[in-house]
Amino acid sequence: MCEVRGTPLSVDEVFAAVQDRAAGGTAVFVGTVRDHDHAREVSGLSYSAHPSVERELRRVMEKVAADFPVRAIAAAHRVGDLEIGDLAVVVAASCPHRAEAFAACRRLIDDLKAEVPIWKQQAFADGEDEWVGAC
């Protein structure tokens, strides 16, 4: 599963995508929209993405799968307007052992945030907004 979409994300959907009978460990990371950033109240945010986003996400996923004994890997990221509490990103990795699953999942979210062309515009309660780099 490798998706960037404008509809709500599902932890169950991503978890189901990485189920594998040979996996002894599955790690899932869920990123949600929080109500603050750097001591400022956030009222909502919007994600936008470059047209190459799914190709780049797949490239990141393939690198993680090559570096860890991944049985299955999945990532879904939301674009568009999100409210506080909405799921922004869900990633998961299943591996033969838990330590590998944790490491693969961590690497997946870290590399996604650093390398996949998705940008966030945060709206603050005071009416100001800011763009945040790749996320």
Rank of each mutant, 00 (worst) to 15 (best):
P8Y: 13
V11Q: 06
V11E: 14
E13T: 14
V14P: 00
V14I: 15
F15A: 15
F15V: 15
F15I: 13
V18Y: 04
Q19I: 03
D20P: 11
R21Q: 10
R21I: 09
G24W: 03
T26V: 15
A27N: 04
V30H: 08
T32Y: 07
D37G: 07
D37M: 05
V42Q: 09
S43G: 06
Y47T: 00
S48P: 00
S48M: 02
A49M: 03
P51S: 11
S52E: 13
V53N: 10
E54I: 01
R55T: 09
R55P: 00
R55M: 04
V60P: 01
V60D: 03
A65P: 02
A66R: 14
P69G: 09
R71Q: 13
R71K: 15
A74I: 05
A74W: 12
A75N: 04
H77G: 10
H77D: 08
R78W: 03
R78T: 00
D81T: 08
D81K: 06
D81Y: 02
E83G: 08
I84T: 07
G85D: 08
D86L: 08
L87A: 11
V89T: 06
V90L: 04
S94W: 02
R98H: 06
E100M: 11
E100W: 03
F102G: 11
F102W: 15
F102R: 14
F102N: 13
L108R: 10
K113H: 09
A114V: 00
A114Q: 13
E115L: 03
V116L: 03
I118P: 02
Q121F: 01
A123N: 14
F124R: 05
